[in-house]
Simulated scan of single mutants.
Amino acid sequence: MKKLFVIIVLASLWITIGSCGTTKKQESVSKPIQKKIAHVEIETLIQDSTLNVRALEIDKKGIGSFALSNGQIGGIVKNPSELDTRLTFQLMHDSIVPNFRSLAVTNKAGFVLSIASPTLLYKINKDSLKLVYKETHPKAFYDAMDFWNDQEGIAIGDPTEDCMSIIITRDGGKTWTKLSCDNLPKAKEGEAAFAASDTNIAIVGDNTWVATGGKASRILYSHDKGKTWQVYNTPIIQGLETTGMYSIDFYDDKNGFAIGGDYTKPNDTLNNKIRTNDGGKTWQVVANGKGPGYRSCVQYVPNSNGKALVAVGFKGIDYSNDAGDSWTHLSDEGFYTIRFLNDSIAYAAGNGRISKLMFR
């Protein structure tokens, strides 16, 4: 009976996973919508004080999958009566309960990745769940994961040697290979990343940007799906273990935005928001000393011509209609991460809940 239940849950999660697509940047080709958001309405879908959700993906039908800090993976699916149903499955490796902070979906499978050591990366198919990567280095700590397409994916983590940890798959997630530090930029002292919202990686086509943070906060860039890498400096606040970029997003291959700060000083607004219009080579501080302080996730609003942004953190929700030059505080409701379904609806997750956000 237990085995049957697991298959039913995995099959249900497949409903969630199988239609999500392979890349976040699949914008509508329609004319960008130039509308200004005035407020946000929040509908709680799941509320549970035991939840800590930093990994969330939403498909085009508004059906979501999530991974939790308590080792559970789950989905919100429609049952025959059209009610939202939460399905979860508990994962354990021997006696270890994995803390999942990263989640990725393709048209073929879903993937969940844990922080800390041992690192555990699972692949989820329609009727199976398999551990496809394990790392036992005592410094192992993975922060984010994404895919270029159904076959090729990437996950990034803190340094275990003298470079950031990067693992890549080229066979649909069956096997993962850790890149040698000989082929990566050397990390600076105290440079790492934050597993705050699963948005340390941005992908547009073959282009990949990785945001680091801590005592040094830089951009690792690859134009060829992780085969070669360059590194770019940023002016974001850095110098302490708690400072730097926490989240990055790109609207196209030129225009990108990153946000962060210092989570121990969440109201500080200096040098915590930066923007690029040359593909990440150079960055400029925007809205300095104003707008949101520390935020853990930023995302472009679809169909906004790269002008509209929403940032979330445990201090609330903020919106910009001018590429980050000015901001409107929409809500004090706190979330860790957010994903857009379209230009008016998003889903957000955080401490104790997953919610639907409707922007008006």
Rank of each mutant, 00 (worst) to 15 (best):
P80G: 01
I33P: 02
L113T: 00
L51V: 05
A55M: 05
V40W: 04
T50R: 12
I63S: 11
L103V: 09
R101T: 05
Q72G: 04
L103W: 03
F111H: 09
N99H: 13
A38F: 15
L51K: 10
K60C: 02
A104G: 13
H93S: 11
A55V: 07
K60V: 10
E57Q: 15
S49P: 12
E82L: 12
L91N: 04
L103G: 05
K60A: 15
S65K: 02
A104F: 07
A109I: 06
T50D: 11
H93T: 04
G62M: 12
E41K: 14
Q47I: 15
I33N: 13
V97L: 12
I46P: 01
S65T: 10
K108A: 08
L83D: 12
V77Y: 13
G71A: 01
G110Y: 03
N70D: 15
Q90D: 12
I115C: 00
R54S: 02
R54A: 07
L83G: 14
Q90V: 10
S102Q: 07
T85F: 11
R86V: 13
T85Q: 15
R54W: 05
V77F: 13
I37N: 08
R54T: 00
V40C: 15
E41Y: 14
V77T: 10
S117W: 00
F66H: 03
A109R: 06
L83W: 06
V105I: 10
L51H: 01
M92E: 11
H93C: 03
L113R: 01
H93P: 01
K60W: 08
P32I: 09
Q34T: 14
M92T: 12
K36P: 02
L51M: 11
G64Y: 11
D84K: 15
G71Q: 00
F66L: 14
F89L: 15
A55P: 05
T44N: 09
F100W: 00
T50H: 10
I96K: 09
P32V: 08
S95I: 05
I96Q: 10
E82R: 14
T106H: 06
A38D: 14
G64E: 04
S95M: 03
A67L: 10
R54C: 05
E43G: 02
